[in-house]
Amino acid sequence: MSDKITETPHTTVIERRGSGGGILIGIVLLIAVVVGAFYLFNRSQNDNIRTDAISGAAKDAGDSAKKIGDSAEKATDGK
């Protein structure tokens, strides 16, 4: 921070000017928040994709097991 002091016979004027460090810190914090939000959003999307994939695979396995059970029942009924 720089101070400029001007003295006249009866008045002293002090002007204070900041170096802009507060604005720089604010911009860095804003960027950090945006990056953090982006990371969390993508992580949530990936979790949803995994959940959907597992649910689909479990449904397919259940359907296959049902078909096998139906085939076994038909095979025993035919004899």
Rank of each mutant, 00 (worst) to 15 (best):
V13D: 12
R16D: 02
G36L: 01
V28T: 12
R16N: 04
I14F: 03
I31S: 14
G22M: 13
I27D: 05
S2L: 06
G78L: 13
R43W: 11
G56I: 06
V13H: 14
I27S: 03
L24P: 02
L30A: 12
K59C: 06
G22C: 15
D77V: 11
E15F: 01
S19Q: 04
S44M: 06
A32E: 00
N42Y: 10
S2P: 04
R43I: 05
G56P: 07
G22K: 14
K59M: 13
S19N: 04
H10L: 06
A57M: 08
T76W: 03
G20S: 05
G69Y: 05
G62N: 14
Y39L: 01
I54C: 07
I27H: 06
A72R: 10
G20T: 08
F41D: 01
I23L: 14
I31G: 12
R50F: 06
K74T: 14
D63Y: 09
G69H: 04
G21F: 00
L30C: 05
N46F: 08
R17Q: 09
S2Q: 07
G22N: 12
H10V: 06
E73W: 14
A72V: 10
S19K: 01
I5P: 02
G20E: 07
A72I: 13
T11W: 06
N46C: 04
T51K: 09
A58M: 11
S55I: 00
M1L: 12
Y39F: 06
G18M: 02
G56C: 07
K67I: 14
G36Q: 02
L29F: 05
L40N: 00
V34E: 01
I49T: 15
I49K: 04
D47Q: 10
T8A: 10
I25Y: 04
V35Q: 03
L40V: 03
H10P: 05
R17K: 11
E7Y: 08
F41L: 03
A58H: 09
T12Y: 11
T12N: 09
A58I: 13
T12S: 10
Q45S: 03
G22E: 15
P9Q: 14
A65K: 07
I23S: 12
G62S: 15
A75W: 15
A57R: 09
N48Q: 02
T8E: 09
G69C: 07
N46T: 11
T8H: 09
D70S: 10
